[in-house]
């Protein structure tokens, strides 16, 4: 039995050297391979439950909102055409100095991935949002029914504490409104009017952004996350905010 400390000090040789068959074998046991060491003779594993679900303790049955809005982002499909960003700006009157959603770019050297990867980001509508905790006027709050992290702009005093609390850089100060603005999953502009999708999800030509209801086992977001074929992850899990934006490839 190798000590975790020793493992941490060893060089991770990269998962691309591990056959998909073997990886799948572990996944079926509910384990995710996180590292490859010593010429492939040692593997580090973590619980698949922890990786796949933002709320590891509660696992599958506990999604506290109805509907529990969520987005699954197929990150390798993103081509940075930015139609999502344009649709969002148009729908929600976002000025060009700010964003409710944007696309990050990073270099990747993975064998199959190509040279770059585009990563769409937006408010994660966390189950344990830090932004709402630190707001002194409760201008930002988590909707008790659908879980959307909302802004009551008449209460916002522009102190920007929420920006500092947010691990996802998902808030900007709207100078015209004299208040912080952020993604609301298009609640005011679309969902509350009966639309099923956010503007960004509808505008995507590549099927990157899958929007839906995590509390419904028949929903494609639920099915996309609750499977064992592909790894699903969240950004910055160490922040502990239980985000509702999930990422996958393929």
């Amino acid at each position: 039995m190798i000590l975790k400390k020793e493992l941490d000090m060893s060089r991770n040789e990269g998962l691309e050297n591990l056959g998909s068959e073997e990886r799948r074998h572990f996944l079926k046991m509910g384990l995710v391979v996180t590292g490859l060491f010593a010429g492939g003779t040692l593997l580090s594993l973590s619980s698949g439950a922890r990786r796949v679900f933002a709320s590891s303790g509660e696992f599958a049955e506990k999604y506290p909102y109805k509907p529990h809005y969520s987005m699954l982002i197929h990150v390798d499909r993103c081509i940075d055409c930015e139609r999502c960003k344009k649709a969002c700006a148009k729908t929600n009157h976002v000025p060009d100095y700010g964003y409710r959603t944007t696309i990050l770019e990073r270099d990747v050297s993975g064998a199959l991935a190509g040279k770059r990867e585009f990563v769409p980001v937006l408010c994660n509508h966390c189950n344990l949002p830090q932004c709402t905790r630190v707001c002194p006027t409760r201008a930002t709050y988590k909707d008790p029914v659908n879980g959307i992290v909302q802004m009551n702009k008449s209460k916002c005093i522009g102190c920007l504490t929420c920006q500092m609390g947010c691990p996802y850089n998902a808030r900007y100060f709207n100078e015209e409104q004299m208040a912080v603005d952020k993604c609301s999953f298009c609640w005011e502009s679309r969902l509350s009017k009966g639309e099923a999708l956010t503007a960004c999800a509808e505008a995507c030509p590549a099927g990157v952004r899958i929007f839906g209801d995590l509390s419904d086992p028949n929903d494609k977001v639920y099915r996309g996350i609750h499977q064992i074929e592909k790894t699903v992850w969240v950004l910055r899990p160490e922040a502990g905010t239980k985000p509702n934006i999930f990422y996958t490839r393929g």
Partner: peptide, 10 residues
């Protein structure tokens, strides 16, 4: 390998 050819707006 979408992003091999798609350079995007960026």
């Amino acid at each position: 390998r979408c992003a091999t050819c798609h350079e995007g707006v960026k």
